[in-house]
Amino acid sequence: MSTKSTGTGSASTGSASTGPTSTEVLVIGGGPIGLAAAIESRRAGREVVVVEPRPAPIDKACGEGLMPGALRGLHELGIDPVGHPLVGISYRDGRRQVDHRFRSGPGRGVRRTTLQQAMADRAEQLGVRMVRAKAESIEYRPGGVAAAGITARWLLACDGLHSPTRRALGLEGAPSTSRPERRFGLRQHFRVPAWTDFVEVHWGSGVEAYVTPVGTDEVGVALLGPPGLDYRAELAGFAELSERLRGAEPLGPVRGAGPLRQRSRRRTAGPVRLVGDASGYVDALTGEGIRVGLAQARAAVATLEQDPADYEREWSRATRSYRVLTSGLVQWASSPVRGAIVPVATTFPRLYGAIVDRLAQ
């Protein structure tokens, strides 16, 4: 993706050439947060177009556990995806385990494709226009911006972890020169009766396994760890989990994502706002990316008419707990005392529960 300060040429090809040529709000990215931003825009009475090159439903390697706050946020948007109830978080290391039930109500395990399709259906119901195209460049124009052959007053960049928009606009943050090291995620589903209503986090010596039931007979297992993860080999290292999955049918391929830690210098550039993972990401460790992304989408739309600094402030407020708690936990998980995480949580269950509830809000 490239950027231009002025110009009249088309920024993209694809179906945009026969679709809309102008709108109030242009959303780049048709994943859950892009669709949330589009839905929020329509709820605010604004005309909106979403540009996304991939057909729905769009999959992604993620844990798929919606925290209670994320589920409430989706309900506020008129979205109620089918899935499996989640009652809390369970930490375990093969010898110990500590469980905490959410105090703020249930969460839900939902296949990423199910979530994205439910949100796409809701967006269509509200009159969001979808364009199958790729935004190859961003052009600033008088009174707005243009991308994918569409001019708009505002552009909401919701194009994910490795956001081309963030990079093209020079909003990438400087890479960290210190630990924690780069981390990646791998995920696969298995046909097996769900044995738990918790999100189970199995802590290994250098890798975590996140178990999320997404149906009565389907479980997703995501592994987080350093580069070069061998999914099968690492999964075999979790004895309890391996026994649970013995003979289970794999559903689909292993999907990967990463590196997970991404930085942004700021979240605004003229009429452009970075939203969701595009605005910066710490790690998937605490599992609240959707909740935080929904809050960012709401803040971005609510502050469109205001000074860009207002969105920066709202972004900081919406992500503060996530950034602080997740960064701290990732630092701990990447340190020589990683093995103390489950023992400490077991010894101080009230502290563990308070952290879980704070992140689940």
Rank of each mutant, 00 (worst) to 15 (best):
A257V: 10
G45L: 08
D159H: 08
A16G: 13
G144R: 09
Q188A: 14
L235W: 07
H202G: 00
E208T: 08
W195K: 06
E24N: 03
G7L: 00
P180L: 08
S242E: 10
K134P: 01
L285M: 03
L77G: 10
I39A: 13
D99P: 03
W195M: 03
T21N: 14
A118S: 15
W203M: 07
E240W: 05
A360E: 05
S279Q: 06
V221K: 00
E136T: 14
I79Y: 01
T326N: 03
W315V: 15
S17L: 15
E234K: 04
V145D: 00
P193C: 02
T6L: 14
A257C: 04
T347H: 05
A318T: 13
F184S: 01
T268V: 12
W154S: 09
R191H: 09
A340C: 04
E124C: 05
G19N: 13
G29E: 13
V342C: 09
A257N: 11
F190R: 15
S41R: 02
L351C: 08
F348H: 09
Q262A: 07
L351P: 09
G173E: 06
I138C: 02
A354M: 11
G204Q: 04
G252Y: 00
L285T: 06
G105S: 01
L260H: 01
G19W: 03
E200S: 04
S316R: 15
D283I: 13
G34R: 00
P85F: 06
L274P: 02
M1P: 09
G228K: 05
E305A: 14
P253I: 05
I355F: 03
E76A: 10
R166M: 07
A146T: 10
T212A: 05
D159E: 14
E314R: 14
R187G: 00
A37V: 10
Q361A: 13
A360N: 10
T346H: 08
T268F: 11
A135W: 15
I39G: 09
S2L: 10
P213F: 08
S15L: 12
D307I: 12
V221C: 02
G65F: 12
A133C: 03
K134C: 04
P250D: 09
D80H: 13
R317I: 11
P68W: 01
R183P: 00
P175Q: 11
